[in-house]
Design a protein around this nucleic acid. Sequence first.
DNA 1: CTTATTTGTAATAGTGTTGGTTACAGATGG
DNA 2: CCATCTGTAACCAACACTATTACAAATAAG
Lengths: 117, 117
Amino acid sequence: MTSEYIAGSVNTNPVVVRRLLALLREAGFVTSQPGNGGGWELAVNPEKLTLEKVRQAVQEESPFSMHSRQPNQRCPVGKKIQGVLGPLYVRAEKAMEGELAKTTVQSLLSAVQVAEK
Amino acid sequence: MTSEYIAGSVNTNPVVVRRLLALLREAGFVTSQPGNGGGWELAVNPEKLTLEKVRQAVQEESPFSMHSRQPNQRCPVGKKIQGVLGPLYVRAEKAMEGELAKTTVQSLLSAVQVAEK
DNA sequence: CTTATTTGTAATAGTGTTGGTTACAGATGG
DNA sequence: CCATCTGTAACCAACACTATTACAAATAAG
């Protein structure tokens, strides 16, 4: 499909679509073909492509992040809080990722098709 | 503690602290006292206060959200995708929340104190 | 009563991120 | 050679978030 076609479906601009798909291409999930008759194509088995993989490809930063400003190191809490929070963030993140890893692009497609009937 | 004291620890402006604490106060987790000798105080048992409760009080919007622009309803996928994605988002969110609910403010405090030794 | 202290809140400015848009070079097939 | 696509840079608008200033209102202490 072309980026313009997809943009029409998602209701946005073709360039926005290309930018996003470029990330998925870097991850090896889709391929693109310039020129006449070109466009974008899925490059992997949709049953193997989980939403977690897609998420990782599209947004590299983790959902949780530390404060932008360094806490005061002279405060007994500020001094240690990041070391305590870090592992917790990792666990919460993993829990979310585990759930997203359960769903594949294929299962999404099937769900859409069922809903369509 | 006063908002100015806390701001010194978190390395930010007192007003920022007050705005955040005001959300926690609305949730009933802390109380505030204006005037001389006033400040902020924890109002609940720190063993009962989970980070998930805090998260809910501080940021009401869910981590996942639908596209800002409505997908094209004439597209067979666009027409149904939100109904398919919705429940999935709920599951991923619940998984994350479940993890955050396992940690209490008290356990954070203990962890900080242990790390301090 | 006066003064110092502290919250409550509005107003404003700066900053960064995101999405949208335009523009155009380069690739490709007919 | 032309129509069609991608690739990408450049730019703007919208939005959110943080920080900051300013000041009214509450409160305790003297």
